[in-house]
Design a protein around this nucleic acid. Structure first.
Length: 156
DNA sequence: GCCAACGTTGGC
DNA sequence: GCCAACGTTGGC
């Protein structure tokens, strides 16, 4: 089967690669963007490789690796009035927001910084590097994925 | 904290 | 369908 690779953003202050390492597996909840949802629903398959990116961090960058551990299913936080991501327009019988489970694979020995990625010609064209890109889930070309993982393992 | 870029909402 | 207003993201 053709490889599919992804990048997901997370703010380490709320959920870091270390937090994922501790819990092992988690619902990737709170995604409230249609394009990102569609990538989860239509693109992701169990076993897909995922770069975990720390946004709003200093410095921002790719911190580790996860794998898609489930098909997409309704995001329960959308139904919970007490949840920050509550959406009254998402009904249990017609859910608007979906999520997948992600499983921890590896924390990279070194953060692959956004700045380093921008400087690297091998990563030209990555969605995450485009100006103004705010999508929290993006597909990643396997060659880019491999390159980033190699850098994260080589740097010490 | 600032603010540019972007997505969504709602009046018309 | 247009678009101004608003809220959010995320680098800096």
């Amino acid at each position: 089967m053709e490889r599919r690779c992804w990048l997901v953003k997370t703010e380490p202050e709320s959920f870091s690669i270390d937090a994922l390492a501790r819990v092992g597996r988690t619902m990737w909840d709170g995604v409230r963007n249609y394009q990102a949802r569609n990538y989860m629903r239509d693109g992701m398959r169990v076993g897909d490789e995922v770069l975990v990116y720390h946004s709003n961090a200093s410095p921002p960058g790719v911190a580790g690796i996860a794998r898609v551990a489930s098909a997409a299913y309704p995001d329960p936080t959308a139904f919970d009035p007490n949840d920050h991501h509550y959406d009254p327009d998402s009904k249990p019988d017609d859910p608007r927001w979906l999520l997948v489970d992600l499983a921890f694979v590896e924390k990279l020995p070194a953060l692959v910084t956004l700045d380093g990625m921008k400087q690297d010609p091998a990563l030209d064209g990555m969605m995450i590097l485009r100006k103004g890109n705010r999508l929290s889930i993006t597909p990643v070309e396997p060659a880019h994925y491999d390159h980033i993982v190699a850098i994260g393992r080589a740097l010490r």
